[in-house]
Design a protein around this nucleic acid. Sequence first.
DNA 1: TGTATGACCAGTC
DNA 2: CGACTGGCCATAC
Length: 110
Amino acid sequence: MSSHDLYNRIYDIVRLIPSGRVTTYGTIAACIGMRSSARMVGWALNALAGTSSLADIPAHRVVNRNGMLSGRMFFDTPFLMREMLEAEGIEFDGDAVRLDKHMWVPEIPE
DNA sequence: TGTATGACCAGTC
DNA sequence: CGACTGGCCATAC
């Protein structure tokens, strides 16, 4: 098991996020058994920045615990992340996503 | 080889 | 209630 597999596990979960929904770094981390290492999720997504993998992996649907778009700077433009979410019907409360309406929890036990 | 840092989170002061 | 701290683990220098 290399750390590369760990990244793939993260990507697998992000791929499952339905359109119009979002989830958080901590939730994904918990799903792959790294409950307190939400930072690794950010690193994994950081590795996708500027690559064509973003077409396959909806990284824009991953936000922090407050619903804020921590990763917007890593998209082509700072607006892109929000625009993509709004295009999917996601509603915002100020700068944060309405997690109470759109929060999605992966169903990947183990 | 050791230190610093990061698309984070929860607890404490 | 804002500010600070520790922890987590991989990567960069």
